[in-house]
Design a protein around this nucleic acid. Structure first.
Length: 450
DNA sequence: TTTTGAGTTGTTCGA
DNA sequence: GTCGAACAACTCAAA
């Protein structure tokens, strides 16, 4: 009997246990696999054009690796899945399990809809080396602190990569054309590109520990986007890292552990997607709406007058990506200098990041805002100038993204207001960092005492 | 049950 | 210029 593999955020053929199960089942029945992707308008609309373009490119790459047999349907998965199952007489739909609030709710609805036709939704694997919910303390509670989580996560371990599925016999089925992209994807998309990038990065991983914090050098893995879409699985990465002993390899493994920790926290506390886990500021600490609107607009446009902040915000708009170090800085600036709640920044990031992932995005924002369980302490407020001098020592990153400042050589670019004649087309500082820092510290103290 | 050690990523101030 | 302390207790996780 024909089986269905429903692709979601696992846009790859290698190391895909759910797909292997679908193919095994089909082979046992002497049948074929339908490889299905559902364009769900609930996700399609809000995802923003750069991410849509990337997804389309990734789907084209997937389709190509399937010999043009990817089946695309547009609509509500609770209707599309039962319809396709009826069309081919399938008894099972295979998926990788979703763990985020939206995905879990959707899958439960699809499962119920399929059950009416006695079709099973079978979940195998997930986007993580260790699925959320699996790593628990000795008393059976979820971890709330990263370091012990990582220790337990490493102890828990994971399977090796799934075996190569070989030549899957894909069922040819009527498929809708993919919508036209608005433009070229901002990154090379697809499984092959992801593997290529990974192998390239592996050559340099030993230096990752020292250099990852330098946005001017940009020696990060750039794998956040493929990981978000499942074009590559962390298990594949961890298997290749297994025998490496460098500090860099350990750091990168740790970053993967953070990814799994955040997914685990959101799994146990779905409300953390919208609510602060711990409130740390009094209600009156936030900038009033009309001024906040103007400040927020300047922040999104990269016109705060702080070069390092502006460079990051402009990189986000131009590339659909921002260096991690700079994400922390612009986040700190929004919450602690502009006194705008983290949720608003998180929404902006979700709209523009190619790697936008609910658990990673929201939990990292909570970390910066100091509202997370294991968050940055309230007094840790990034200084936009110091961060620039430290991590972009020659000013190359700023000049790359802020053309108005290109005439300023060296590190002076981080403090254009100190020049005898500051560039006229670059904005003045929106706020005084020293003052706003004190404002935040005072507000925190008020909250704590009150 | 109680105790103990530890906790991603920073900045400022004063000696 | 460099360096350590202060920032603030609190909660977590394991022994």
């Amino acid at each position: 009997m024909t089986t269905i593999h429903w692709f979601r955020r696992d846009l790859r053929l290698a190391d895909n246990p759910a797909l292997n199960n679908a193919w095994d089942q089909a082979q046992a029945d002497g049948s074929q696999v339908v490889g299905l992707f559902v364009l769900d308008d609930r996700l399609w609309g809000p995802s923003g054009s750069p991410r849509r373009d990337y997804l389309l490119a990734s789907l084209r790459a997937l389709d190509e690796s399937m010999g043009g047999r990817l089946v695309v349907r547009r609509g509500d998965p609770t209707e599309v899945l039962p319809a396709v199952a009826r069309e081919v007489g399938a008894s099972t739909v295979h998926v990788a399990e979703s763990f985020e609030p939206f995905g879990r709710a959707r899958d439960e609805e699809v499962e119920a809809a399929l059950a009416e036709d006695e079709v099973e939704l079978r979940r195998t694997g997930s986007a993580y080396a260790v699925s959320p919910g699996r790593v628990l303390t000795r008393t059976g509670t979820p971890y709330r602190v990263f370091t012990p989580f990582r220790t337990a996560w490493l102890d828990h371990g994971w399977r090796g990569p799934a075996q190569d599925p070989g030549e899957v016999d894909w069922a040819g089925l009527t498929s809708e054309d993919l919508p036209e992209a608005d433009g070229e994807p901002l990154r090379p998309a697809g499984e092959e590109a992801a593997l290529e990038r990974w192998h390239e990065f592996l050559e340099d991983v030993a230096g990752y520990d020292d250099d990852r914090d330098r946005p001017d050098l940009d020696l990060t893995s750039r794998l956040s986007v493929p990981l978000k879409w499942g074009e590559i699985h962390p298990r594949t990465l961890l298997a290749d890292l297994k025998d490496l002993r460098s500090e860099g390899a350990a750091s990168f493994r740790s970053e993967l552990a953070w990814r799994e920790f955040h997914a685990d926290v959101l799994f146990h506390s779905p409300e953390a997607a919208t609510l602060s886990i711990r409130e740390v500021m009094p209600d009156d600490a936030w900038t009033p709406r009309s001024q906040a609107d103007r400040w927020f607009e300047a922040w999104t446009a990269g016109r705060t007058g702080y070069p390092m902040v502006d460079a990051g915000m402009r990189q986000l708009l131009a590339e659909g990506w921002m260096h991690g170090r700079v994400r922390m800085l612009v986040g700190s600036f929004l919450v602690k200098d502009l006194h705008i709640p983290w949720q608003r920044g998180a929404r902006h990031f979700m709209q523009h990041l190619l790697d936008a992932d609910r658990s990673q995005n929201q939990l990292n924002w909570q970390w910066v805002a100091g509202t997370g369980l294991d968050a940055s302490p309230y007094f840790r407020i990034f200084n936009p100038v110091t961060q620039g001098l430290k991590f972009d020592p020659d000013g190359d990153y700023v000049r790359r993204w802020v053309p108005e400042l290109r005439g300023i050589p060296g590190k002076a670019v981080h403090e254009p207001w100190k020049l005898p004649t500051p560039p006229e087309d670059y904005p003045d500082q929106l706020v005084d960092h020293g003052r706003e820092r004190k404002e935040s510290l005072d507000a925190y103290a008020r909250f704590k005492d009150g």
